[in-house]
Design a protein around this nucleic acid. Structure first.
Length: 271
DNA sequence: AACATTGTCAACCGCTTTGCA
DNA sequence: ATGCAAAGCGGTTGACAATGT
């Protein structure tokens, strides 16, 4: 028996997305919102698996995505969050607005891992590597999640969500941030100063940073009122614009501009 | 210039989690 | 409480680009 495949494999296209497919997906999601992934391909006229559509949207087409390499500060934040959360990329990504779990995972595997190894830090445990293993990646990078150090057994492999709130405290976090009884130098002090983030990590709150664009409710801004008429003549124009946008990165325009467009689009849709 | 090697990242696969009847 | 479907997640793969020889 086994579980049903997520989609009808017959006739389902795989591999890189074409511009035409992107356009269809963008158009559908702008009209209907990101929902019902399983039904979406049929409704949007795509010969793709719903999963594939969701991935394409969340990792590439979403208008709030930043493009390009992670900045120095983002990298530090990733390292710090990874030390606490382990390979929970989606959790890490939720604290970096405009970045996806896939992107962070890729960046970790291709850049950060190597940087840490160069510095003699085990990218899995975030502890100093034994001297003889500094030059060899195999000891640490090949380790599976099950081969984590005791530190991870105690901290990161036990999800924060599973920890009772009574047990969770800032003090506990601070203990976790020590190495060999010495406070580990915080890679991003600002992170620990951020009570909202700490609270979130402890499971008390919603993510403190940018809301998911899926809600399509970004903060108001002054510019928004400037132009309440539709920006695009048609959905095709809108989809084309979004596809152009992804090449630059929406942040090149500033999120304010995005809000204006999105609100206009949504307003237009309601009429 | 041609080939080999290495790096990057989009996309896929399969397992887990979540939500609902 | 249980079973199923859908969504989410993390590991892995493979195509392409960049770099080295």
């Amino acid at each position: 028996m086994g579980r049903q495949p997520c989609c009808d494999k017959l006739g389902v296209k795989k591999g890189p997305w074409t511009a035409e497919e992107d356009k269809k997906l963008i158009k559908f999601i702008l009209t209907n919102g990101p929902c019902c992934w399983r039904a979406l391909p049929k409704l949007a006229g795509l010969r793709r698996c719903g999963k594939s559509c969701r991935l394409r949207w969340t990792n590439y087409l979403r208008p709030d995505l930043k493009r390009g390499l992670l900045t120095e500060s983002e990298e530090q934040l990733v390292i710090d969050l990874h030390a606490r959360l382990g390979n929970r990329w989606s959790k890490i990504a939720s604290n970096l607005p405009g970045r996806t779990d896939n992107e962070i995972k890729n960046h970790w595997n291709t850049h950060i891992k190597k940087k840490l190894l160069k510095k003699g830090i085990d990218p899995v445990t975030h502890e100093p590597l034994p001297k003889e293993t500094h030059t060899s990646e195999t000891s640490s990078t090949s380790s599976s999640p099950n081969e984590r150090s005791p530190r991870f057994e105690n901290n990161c492999s036990q999800p924060f969500e599973g920890t009772s709130k009574e047990d969770s405290s800032v003090a506990q976090i601070e203990i976790n941030l020590t190495v060999n009884d010495k406070p580990r130098p915080l890679m991003s002090q600002s992170l620990c100063d951020d009570e909202k983030l700490l609270s979130y990590l402890l499971g008390d709150n919603e993510p403190p940073l940018l809301d998911s664009i899926s809600d399509w409710e970004l903060p108001n801004n002054e510019n928004k009122s400037k132009n309440s008429t539709s920006v695009f003549a048609s959905w095709d124009d809108c989809a084309t614009w979004l596809m152009d946008c992804k090449d630059f990165g929406v942040n090149d325009f500033g999120l304010d501009f995005l809000n204006e467009v999105e609100m206009s689009v949504m307003d237009n849709k309601r009429v």
